[in-house]
């Protein structure tokens, strides 16, 4: 049984439209005038940058944490 998400070109198509939306949002940031409440928001494309960097940081730090915190599944039972 192979589903909709098993076909490589379906995935490729989904990803492409996703990238397209990302680019669109990035462009909109420069076209539309958004309201600034804080200084830091004035950085061009602040939100896209922040979202990307935040998530990469999150995952990198979490991976590093895993090295410290990971134990066997039955750690507490032993």
């Amino acid at each position: 049984m192979s589903g909709f998400f098993d076909k490589a070109n379906h995935i490729k198509w989904i990803l492409r439209s996703f990238y397209g939306l990302c680019v669109l949002l990035l462009v909109l940031d420069f076209l539309l005038h958004r309201h600034h409440y804080l200084q830091i928001e004035k950085i061009p494309a602040f939100y896209p940058l922040f979202g990307f960097v935040a998530c990469v940081t999150l995952v990198v730090v979490a991976k590093w944490m895993r090295r410290l915190l990971k134990r066997d599944e039955d750690y507490y039972d032993g």
């Binding site: 990803l15 996703f18 990238y19 939306l21 990302c22 949002l25 990035l26 909109l28 940031d29 539309l32 958004r34 494309a45 939100y47 896209p48 940058l49 922040f50 979202g51 990307f52 935040a54 998530c55 990469v56 995952v59 990198v60 979490a62 991976k63 895993r66």
Partner: peptide, 25 residues
């Protein structure tokens, strides 16, 4: 609406990128 969409889409982009690079734990 715009800023929230930007934030979320680029977080998702990070997820895709991390997965493609094999960095995702």
């Amino acid at each position: 609406t715009l800023t929230q969409l930007q934030l979320l889409f680029f977080s998702a982009l990070a997820f895709v990128w991390l997965n493609k690079q094999g960095i995702y734990p």
